[in-house]
Write a protein that binds this DNA or RNA. Structure first.
Length: 828
RNA sequence: GCCGAUGUGGUGAAAUUGGCAAACACGCAGCACUCAAAAUGCUGUGGGCUCACGCCCUUGUGGGUUCAACUCCCACCAUCGGCACCA
């Protein structure tokens, strides 16, 4: 018998598949225009989060998700679906640029080199990608359309310039969006982020907050990801209430979710940056102190604010009083940095009795604490609070509202003071410009000659793409200007509107731009006329299955949904959500329990594993390691199990015997019986593998195939039709080996074009089962029983079992529970 | 602090959704083959008591519901993720 030579087999089939174009996507919608292939096939768009081609190359963790989508899409294909399963590169952005800077090469050269390496590594694993649809976000033909989307956003007023202070990473020397922070640290390099006022391009993602939240309901995504997005969007329903400032025309507009506590407000607080503070300057008696506080607050980094969290600071605006609209009480007004300028109205009414932060502040500044919600209502007295009470209750010390429930009081008090019901979100607009070289140029021209110009002008669509200029020196400047600003020849241009001299926008887009719509490009990768052909898009969209890491929950996955909804509103796409079903890939941790990284020297390279054990073995192993969405530790020691499994299958191919049509007739009764057992197991395996693939439970699908393999091995003979069918269910998992053995059986066409076998429900049913007999819930005996035996029959069998008879010793059982097909429980 | 997830043998894990806990695999031990080793095959492998037939205990901890709980309910502990002065 020959040895299982994975090297030969895998190389052979990779080449054959490439030559035959086996994995090329069929454009079935063209059927309408009269092609020969018959009716419209159902489609399945199976997508991996495309990788950033880093200099480190792939480690064994990367392919985990790719293997899963490969299995899934092969399975779908066998079930008659038309498959779109593409791959591409997310190659713009900071990491690529930093990598190039370190090595003193051009980012373009670095990216090209890394992509080549990635492609090689991926091709070794036998994936069914249609490489004719490969895309690259740094390709001008691609980013032309990224820029086009920006122009549309600009046109619709959703891209705007702003000078608000934003997050600045001093080490990466660029501004960052909220989503780019982890805590208050740059997600990329871990440096503490500073606040820096900077001219920025912003995208108005907040306009879509409600729809981003609402439409989560219809998505088949892991609950944890949906929950993260809900938290990130952070919707809260509340009320805006105006507090007049005594003896003036000014008002403080506060936002609160607890209007029921209005009578308990004992002071107001404005954020230090609040515009009203400057307006009130002439009337503030301690302006110097206030000014100092504002400066101090502005200088504080977010880190400092964080560490000082519990320690509240602030300053009273002396000479200013606000009037509580509920009871006309005069309240002192403070500025304090525990109130955030960018959330709500940047101003609050403080109710120390019913808010933890206000409580702490009130204690520190010796302000009155007035309880107005009573948990155990016993008017006129309430138990004294020793901390803020946040719950519901009945109102007290609230005038005519005393005694009513807080929930009801919310509405009534709002009405009483003319409050405006509003909804606020934590989500903030997307800081969209980066002061770096390696990104898509923002297609904007500034027309600002001394005599007065057109201002900010969009580059005409016909001039797209605005190509990133070739440069020698692309180091970030750190001044808040992009390195592009130094390329005078590139910056200097004509205003497309008036023809006078203009300057190009020199900021670039963040890495997230290209990945916010790439899944559409795969549908129509060569299109130069529009973003995507709408007819093609209608057929292929939405992505049916999207697999990738959970770390994208509030970054890529929220940005892409935002852009998609915008494109939907624009009429450029047919559906309002891009990704119907999402599967999280659990990380593969290194054997030492840490993340795999060159830094720790614990990287396992998939090429090495594939060389020693084979790509099919690696595929089986990674899918067998554990539940797909769970993090697991790599163990080179355990791979051998997957390898043994495939070796067994390989040697089984030499064991096949064509059995007579009717073995019983041929005097092989025992063997016929054995074969029918095998057949039974086969049908159950078809069912289990199919269901498990659909549910991304590859580990148990493989376990089932192992059980079947072990049985086939034990069996005296192995009928060819059984082994043949088994190969089909193995095919998505181990494409090379199954194809090889398929050929060995004399088949001329590819196993990957075969139909997924159907199981016969009658074949799955066993004739008998092992009846478990319990006494008081403990197993006391087991016996063979007919599968279709009814309750009465099973009860009789159990009670007649010698062991049970003995245990009962003549006593009558109290109760007997019979579960047909399973057990009998006798209670005594 | 809030939200989410997880907790089962030496290890990765499984359990038809309330019905035999530990399938499948790794590892380990013994045996066979071998001069020997590797590979392979067979047997065993949660813990305790017992010469043994057997019996008892066991799914993070404590309680509860049930004929029956890894699964449902209550309280707690631990680990990992996300958010965090969001009014």
């Amino acid at each position: 018998m020959k040895q299982y030579n994975h090297k030969l087999i895998e190389k052979k089939w990779r080449e054959k598949w490439r030559k035959s174009g086996l994995y090329k996507t069929e454009e079935s919608f063209s059927v309408e225009s009269g092609s020969a292939s018959g009716g419209k096939k159902p489609k399945s768009y199976v997508l991996d989060m495309f990788p950033f081609p880093s200099g480190e190359g792939l480690h064994v963790g990367h392919p985990k998700g790719y293997i899963a989508t490969d299995i899934y899409s092969r399975f779908k294909k066998m079930n008659g679906y038309n498959i779109l399963h593409p791959m591409g590169w997310d190659a713009f952005g900071l990491p690529a640029e930093n990598y190039a800077l370190e090595r003193k090469i051009h980012p373009k050269a670095a990216v090209d080199k890394n992509i080549k390496r990635f492609r090689e590594q991926l091709s070794l694993l036998g994936f069914n990608y249609d490489w004719s649809r490969e895309i690259n976000t740094t390709d001008p033909d691609y980013y032309k359309w990224t820029q086009w989307i920006f122009l549309k956003l600009f046109e619709k007023g959703l891209a705007y310039e702003s000078d608000e202070p934003i997050n600045w990473c001093p080490s990466c020397r660029t501004g960052l969006s909220n989503e780019d922070l982890e805590g208050n640290v740059c997600e990329r390099c871990g440096s503490a982020v500073k606040k820096k006022p900077l001219r920025q391009w912003m995208l108005k993602i907040t306009d879509y907050a409600e729809r981003l939240l609402e439409d989560l309901k219809e998505l088949d995504w892991p609950e944890s990801i949906k929950e993260s997005q809900r938290n990130w969007i952070g919707k809260s329903q509340g009320v805006e209430i105006e507090f007049k400032i005594q003896n003036s025309k000014f008002k403080i507009n506060v936002f609160t979710t607890r209007p029921d506590t209005l009578f308990g407000a004992t002071y107001c607080v404005l954020a230090p940056e609040h515009k009203l503070v400057k307006k009130l300057k002439p009337r503030i008696k301690n302006w110097r102190e206030i000014e100092k506080y504002i400066e101090k607050a502005a200088a504080k980094s977010e880190i400092e604010r964080l560490t000082e969290k519990k320690e509240k600071t602030g300053a009273e605006l002396k000479g200013i009083k606000a009037i509580n609209p509920a009871n006309n009480e005069e309240l002192p007004v403070f500025i304090a940095d525990y109130v955030l300028a960018h959330y709500g109205t940047g101003a609050i009414m403080a109710v120390p009795a019913h808010d933890e932060r206000d409580w702490v502040f009130a204690k520190k500044f010796n302000l009155p604490i007035k309880q107005v919600i009573c948990q155990f209502y016993q008017e006129p007295k309430c138990p004294v609070l020793n901390e803020a009470y946040l719950g519901e209750g009945k109102l007290t010390q609230s005038g005519k509202f005393n005694g009513i429930d807080s929930e009801k009081a919310k509405k009534e008090i709002t009405k009483f003071v003319g409050g405006k019901i509003t909804v606020k979100y934590k989500l903030r607009d997307w800081v969209f410009s980066r002061q770096r070289y390696w990104g898509e140029p923002i297609p904007i021209i500034h027309c600002d000659p001394p005599a007065g110009g057109c201002g900010v002008v969009a580059v005409p669509e016909s001039d797209l793409p605005v190509k990133l200029p070739e440069v020698k020196n692309y180091e970030p400047t750190g001044t808040g200007e992009s390195p592009l600003a130094n390329i005078k020849k590139w910056v200097k241009t004509k205003c497309p509107r008036c023809g006078r001299e203009g300057r190009r926008e020199t900021n670039t887009m963040p890495q997230w731009a290209g990945s916010s719509w790439y899944y559409l490009r795969y549908i129509d990768p060569k299109n130069d006329q529009s973003l995507v052909d709408k007819k093609k898009e209608k057929y292929w969209s939405p992505v049916d299955l999207y697999a990738g890491g959970a770390e994208h929950a509030t970054r890529h996955l929220i940005y892409a949904r935002f852009w998609h909804k915008f494109l939907y509103d624009l009429g450029a796409v047919n559906y309002s959500e891009p990704f119907k079903r999402l599967q999280n890939v659990g990380l593969i941790i290194a054997e030492d329990g840490r993340k795999m990284s060159k830094r720790y020297g614990n990287v396992v390279n998939p090429d090495d594993i594939a060389a020693v054990y084979g790509a099919d073995t690696l595929r089986i192993y990674e899918m067998f390691m554990g539940p797909f969405d769970q993090a697991v530790s790599w163990s080179t020691e355990s791979i051998i199990g997957a390898r043994r499994f495939l070796e067994k299958i390989y040697s089984l191919a030499f064991k096949i015997k064509i059995t007579p049509n009717n073995p019983a007739e041929a005097g092989l009764a025992g063997q016929a019986n054995q074969n029918s057992k095998l057949e039974n197991l086969l049908h159950r395996s078809i069912k289990k593998a199919g269901e498990d693939i659909e549910n991304f439970k590859f580990n148990t699908a493989i376990a089932q195939m192992m059980i079947l393999t072990n049985e086939m091995e034990k069996s005296e003979t192995l009928p060819e039709n059984i082994f043949e069918t088994f190969l089909k269910i193995l095919a998505p998992f181990a494409p090379h080996l199954s194809e090889e053995l398929w050929e060995k059986l004399g088949r001329k066409t590819s196993i990957h074009s075969e139909k997924w076998p159907e199981y016969d429900p009658r074949m799955i049913k066993e004739k008998t089962f092992e009846l478990v007999i319990q006494i008081n819930g403990k197993v006391r005996a087991k016996m063979e029983a007919p599968a279709e035996a009814g309750e009465a029959e099973l009860r009789g069998m159990a009670l007649n079992h010698p062991v049970i008879k003995e245990k009962l010793a003549g006593r009558p059982p109290k109760k007997i529970i019979v579960v047909p097909g399973r057990l009998v429980n006798v209670v005594i």
